[in-house]
Design a protein around this nucleic acid. Structure first.
Lengths: 119, 119
DNA sequence: CAGGATCCTTTACGATACTG
DNA sequence: CAGTATCGTAAAGGATCCTG
């Protein structure tokens, strides 16, 4: 008789659901995935760049979301001592671990939002 | 000379970012992934079941989120003529296309929220 | 340029009570 | 049981102006 895991199905599900909840505590908000998707392209971007790339976001929101994600170490903020100062935002290694999620969201958006399923 | 795609890199990125934006318009909100994750386990669940499973949600929010997702055809609502009435919620085929996203979020939550990266 | 400060409007969310 | 009604708070979002 096989007894590979100590966890039963119910417990595994609870862990998964809990994991989703915890993940979303960091990732929820209208703009996070959008900003992360932009930064995941790999370039360092300045505040103004992001304001342009993340279409529709207001400076106040962008500022807040960036701070949020910096606290959570998903992105890094680098102040360059140029004149006037420029600030570069970049995704961290930790942030890059979100790539599979972002990719799946992008894929879904491309594949299904415009497909036969759409009203 | 190869000329496989009409799209250049910039355009591909724009499509991806736009796809993320559109996807998140349907999926944003504090509870959607949580509810979908629960329903993706496969069972039909009643309102009360969900209220218990989706820990912390208030009936009003659950009701609203369910309506939202029904409009977007991610879930289906079935009223059974028992007495008193019971209502079953189930994920649709379209909703199931979100499984890769939910799986990745759950995986990330399990793998990274408790790992070395975490403060 | 990178934002913070202020003011105001609109959603999102939450707690509790109530109804068919 | 499956919600809706009501009320209240908090966060989102927009506009404009300001500062180092």
């Amino acid at each position: 008789m096989k007894k590979q895991s100590v966890l039963n199905t119910t417990q595994i599900c609870k862990v998964r659901i809990q994991a989703i909840k915890e993940a979303m505590e960091i990732l929820s908000g209208k703009w996070k995935f959008h900003i992360l998707g932009t930064l995941l392209q790999g370039d360092k971007l300045r505040f103004m760049d992001l304001l342009r790339e993340v279409e529709g976001i207001a400076p106040k929101m962008l500022s807040k979301e960036l701070q949020d994600m910096e606290v959570n170490q998903l992105i890094s903020r680098n102040v360059c001592n140029t004149k006037p100062v420029t600030v570069e935002y970049e995704i961290t290694e930790y942030g890059k671990t979100l790539k599979p999620i972002i990719d799946e969201i992008a894929n879904w958006g491309i594949a299904y939002r415009t497909s036969m399923f759409k009203k």
